[in-house]
Nucleic acid binder design. Structure first.
Length: 469
RNA sequence: UCCUCGGUAGCUCAAUGGCAGAGCGGGCGGCUGUUAACCGCUAGGUUGUAGGUUCGAGUCCUACCCGGGGAGCCA
């Protein structure tokens, strides 16, 4: 059947029907049945189309022509089109319902694996192709969208330009962990050089290539031209990490701003997080209420608390002091110079300050080469935003803009300076103080929703040993 | 990668070394306003895999596979 150009999208979204100002209108809705209750003379069929967590209850009378042949047999998972009148519901639990005048069944769902009862998140992961139809995952996907939109809105408002950095990188200078190789060489018998090593000059890019672990270095080059840029894209880590907080493929937001120092960076990070959480609370209220009801009772109040209160800022040195004087016995003792363990971060955020905390000025030995060396020559202008339960969701720094210091730091850390010439050029030609940070997008979703496992914060999670679907 | 817990029906889980079960879901029937509807009937199993101990193994032992949680690493 061919429709005229410019004719309206078929039907009304469930969300719009449920938020109608009044009953009385006609509506045509499409969706999937979440639950059906059949009585002798009629059926209640609850329809969800993903536009909201809520279902629209359609009342289907036995006088409908396909009642005996189809409607009576409808169960969870079936897809339908229902036309009817929007009426005030005499029952409890919903304001409006749809008095069906016609029901078209697109597809039945025999042996549908999703039940109307609760499923474990572990089981839902095994049917990742169907879990968008679950309440929890529908809410995750809607909140994820809201947050992505909020990211772009925030930076656009703040004068940042959205930059797309490469996913394939042929330089090995990103140095942020194990990388996935990208190659077209035959896996079994790759060409070898005289030394017997794989000859990457014959590979697709003429050299060894990998998937990006960060867009930061590329973002710096653009920030030193457009002043304020941000990236938002997929990022890959080949670490064998099996935790509730790690993915092999995740999304990262990386703003980079010129003529800025560490305080500007922290101010931006705090403003940014509070802004996107405010959007989730306001525009995702229904989904957040669901998370509070089913996933984490404190989900909404936690976010409100974050939105309404300033983050606590302290230096690494102060944090070490607090931990040492805490009276707590940690599995790993704290001493100045070592990186903080999970238990330390959790004590700081969950017990000591009970809200997000920004730690600054870490020892240079435990941070990356590009972070600006402080005047004490022992610490760098780094900042990590730690939140309760998750730990680090943002890592950032003021960047080292002084050419001589940057070259010295590269040498100290044993990195091949010749590979960084293009990066050093940004300091040779009109260098400028600048700063930036990276936000783990899924970790942020995990924090906002209260979900226990980051694998439930992305549609198709990739983890060691698992790339299904 | 290490530590730890687990794997029984489609799902969630019971079962002292001695007949493999329940609830939900599915199917069939009943019920004129349900809300994870309710009532009755019914089908549904290579107890993760491979060995071993034992008269007898879902249960004990060994190895492996898969999953959860914690740690490391990090965002």
């Amino acid at each position: 059947m061919c429709r005229a150009k410019g004719s309206p999208m078929r039907g009304t979204r469930v969300k719009d029907v449920l938020s109608s100002p009044s009953s009385g209108g006609e509506a045509l809705v499409h969706g999937w049945i979440r639950t059906a209750r059949h009585s002798k003379g009629f059926s209640f069929v609850e329809i969800n189309d993903g536009s909201t967590i809520h279902n629209l209850q359609a009342v289907c009378d036995a006088s409908l022509p396909n009642y005996e042949s189809a409607i009576k047999h409808l169960g969870t998972g079936a897809s339908v089109q229902v036309a009817g009148k929007v009426v005030d519901s005499p029952g409890k639990g919903q304001k409006f319902e749809l008095q069906a005048s016609s029901v078209h069944v697109y597809g039945m769902a025999p042996d549908y694996p999703l039940q109307k009862k609760g499923h474990t998140m572990e089981f839902l992961r095994t049917i990742a192709h169907l879990r968008p139809r679950s309440n929890t995952f529908g809410s995750v996907l809607r909140v994820r969208h809201l947050m992505a939109k909020a990211v772009h809105d925030f930076f656009s408002r703040e004068g940042f330009y959205y930059l797309q950095t490469p996913i394939i990188t042929a330089s090995d200078c990103e140095g942020a962990g194990a990388m996935f190789r990208v190659t077209t060489l035959p896996a079994g018998q790759p060409p070898r050089d005289e030394m017997g090593k794989v000859d990457f000059t014959q590979d697709f890019f003429g050299k060894e290539a990998h998937l990006t672990v960060s867009g930061q270095l590329a973002a710096e080059t653009a920030a030193l031209a457009l002043s304020r840029v941000y990236t938002f894209g997929p990022t890959f880590r080949a670490e064998n990490s099996n935790t509730t907080r790690h993915l092999a493929e995740f999304w990262m937001v990386e703003p980079e701003l010129a003529f800025a120092d560490l305080v500007d960076d922290m101010d931006l990070a705090e403003r940014f997080l509070r802004s996107i959480f405010r959007v989730v609370l306001e525009e995702g209220a229904d989904d957040m209420a669901f998370f509070a009801e089913r996933i984490d009772k404190t989900a909404v109040q936690t976010l409100q608390h974050v939105v309404e209160n300033d983050f606590v800022r302290m230096t690494y040195t102060e944090a070490v002091d607090i931990l040492q004087k805490s009276g707590k016995t940690f599995e790993f003792p704290v001493q100045w110079g070592v990186d903080l363990q999970s238990e330390h971060e959790r004590y700081l955020t969950e017990e000591h300050v009970k809200r997000p905390v920004i730690l600054t000025n870490y020892p240079k030995e435990i941070k990356a080469f590009y972070m600006r060396l402080n005047d004490d020559e022992r610490t760098v202008a780094a900042m990590d935003v730690l939140v309760p339960r998750i730990g680090e969701i943002i890592g950032g720094s003021q960047r080292e803009e002084r050419l001589d210091v940057l070259e010295r730091r590269l040498r100290e850390m044993g990195l091949p300076i010749e590979d960084y010439q293009w990066y050093l050029d940004t300091r040779r030609f009109g260098t400028a103080p600048h700063a930036g940070f990276g936000l783990g997008f899924e970790r942020t979703i995990q924090f906002a929703t209260g979900l226990g496992n980051i694998r439930d914060c992305i549609a198709f999670p990739r983890t060691p040993g698992s790339a299904e679907f």
